[in-house]
């Protein structure tokens, strides 16, 4: 049931990606380095025809909450990137869809 008119609806989904020759095809950025000024791993770029883009659900501004079951909330940015890079060939991402306002800032 809709609790409030402007419900802070947060759409979260799981994406399984397999690393391709160029990796997953995502460029990540720390939310602190964007006009958002709030920590978090956000998708800054998506390379066409890459595993990440091919999935179709990922878009710029989305936030990565966890990788392979490991939460990135509160983790520092570099260790999160290292975790993704060392996550092996198949990676499971928990992603939070961002609305237009956030996407624009990223």
């Amino acid at each position: 049931s809709r609790s409030s008119a402007t419900d802070d609806f947060c759409y979260v989904f799981v994406v399984e990606l397999e690393r391709g020759p160029i990796g997953l095809g995502m460029g990540l950025i720390d939310g602190l380095h964007t006009p958002l000024c709030s920590p978090g791993i956000y998708i800054r770029t998506l390379i066409e025809d890459s595993p990440a883009a091919a999935d179709g659900r990922l878009s710029i501004g989305d936030r990565i909450l966890a990788v392979n079951g490991t939460s990135l909330i509160g983790a520092d940015y570099q260790s999160a990137v290292d975790l993704i890079r060392s996550g092996g060939k198949k990676l499971r991402f928990l992603v939070a869809k961002s609305d237009m306002e956030i996407a624009k800032k990223i």
């Binding site: 990796g23 997953l24 995502m26 460029g27 990540l28 950025i29 720390d30 380095h33 800054r44 770029t45 990137v81 993704i84 890079r85």
Partner: peptide
């Protein structure tokens, strides 16, 4: 600013 920004993006 663009140069600085692209520098902070990590490709995975």
């Amino acid at each position: 600013r663009q140069a600085r920004e692209t520098q902070q993006v990590s490709d995975v």
